[in-house]
């Protein structure tokens, strides 16, 4: 299913998701607010997006951009959900209830960015030691091992 068909299908089934849908460089993207994330994700799952392949985040200068990538095996189609959360107190609802695949990936995102997933049953650090300080993938993270390369390389 190509991207325009996907858009039509989505708009026909869930009209309220339609204005959130955009196409960026050939990928379907649904941008939602944090408080509507769970609902939108649930709708997409009912639409046939049975796999949650990626949960991650990007540290933008003003906010964290949460990125979810969903995949529908029946339609061979993928869609991104992007959700901007506040940088100072990042909180968003967990999707672990919809896809258990989110369990570890949200833990990793918490580990690396400090984004708290409400409703996650076991949210703690996964790759880093429990007593690690800071969230390394934030752009403002500093410790003695982080070396910035000069710009001219």
């Amino acid at each position: 299913m190509n991207i325009t068909e996907l858009r039509e299908h989505l708009c026909a089934t869930y009209p309220d998701l339609c204005p959130l849908f955009s196409i960026e460089f050939g990928d379907g993207v649904i941008s939602v607010d944090p408080d509507r994330l769970l609902e939108a994700a649930g709708n997409l799952r009912d639409l046939g997006f049975d796999r949650l392949s990626v949960v991650t985040a990007v540290d933008r200068p003003t906010h964290f951009e949460l990125v979810y990538r969903l995949y529908a095996r029946s339609m061979s189609a993928a869609v991104f959900i992007k959700c901007n959360v506040d940088r100072d107190s990042p909180r968003v609802h967990s999707l672990a209830g919809l896809w258990p695949a989110a369990l570890w990936q949200e833990r990793e995102t918490f580990d690396m960015f400090g984004i708290v997933f409400d409703g996650h049953p076991d949210l703690r650090r996964i790759l880093l030691p429990d007593d690690w300080e800071g969230y390394p993938l934030r752009k403002d993270y500093e410790d003695e091992t982080v070396i910035r390369r000069p710009d001219y390389i």
Binding site: F110, G114, F117, H120, D122, L123, R124, D130, D131, E133
Partner: peptide
Amino acid sequence: MTGEIGSDACFT
């Protein structure tokens, strides 16, 4: 434990 920042609970 729900992801408290700076929690020092070790695995043990």
